[in-house]
Amino acid sequence: MANGYGKIFKDGVFFNNPTFVQLLGLCPTLAVTTSVFNGIGMGLSVTFVLIFSNLFISLLRKFIPQNIRIAAYVVIIAGFVTVVDLVIKAFFPELSSSLGLFIPLIVVNCVILARAESFASKNPPFPSVVDGLANGIGVTLALTVISAIREFTGNGTLLGFPVTPETFSPAVIMILPSGGFLVLGFVIAAVQFVQRKRRADR
């Protein structure tokens, strides 16, 4: 079974990365990745919701009737998103002011519903938690990479600290929505290149 968990993990983080391979949940991906702080904050929030929604949906998979499963999943997901929203507002007010609008939108982030439907509803609790964690790490990784590129090229900073010489004038377009699409496209191309090469080598 150890091999099974390894596969779940590798799939979630790399080979089936929710953002770069499945292209799920792109709206928050593009919207919040203007700074690394936001990207990591959003990634961790999604991870938290994924782990708990997967756990509960897996525990309740025999209890929830087939024909209303989506409604039940959405209620559970919305519940955990609200928990995250309240906790962030209470303990990380800084993060809340920059992510504010996007936290409630995690409810409709298709990564979470996709994992609930395709994994947690068919598997026991522990593998589901591993799957949630792996996919969460995958999302966090993706958001961190995109936001690091965008913050560096668009603002000349990383995590808010200036890292470029004074003479470097940042390209503001990179932190505007169009820059988000550009960076996402290039990163997906790079990921695909690496994955294809790996497949060809085998």
């Binding site: 024909n67 209303i68 209620v75 919305a78 519940g79 609200t82 309240l86 906790v87 507002k89 209470a90």
Partner: peptide
């Protein structure tokens, strides 16, 4: 089906009530 969905909603609401009580003052 109705009963089961009600149970799910009730449990989630209860959880939210607890979290809200814990965070309300700090917010």
């Amino acid at each position: 089906v109705v009963l089961k969905l009600t149970v799910v909603v009730a449990v989630v609401s209860m959880m939210l009530a607890v979290v809200n009580t814990l965070t309300r003052d700090r917010i």
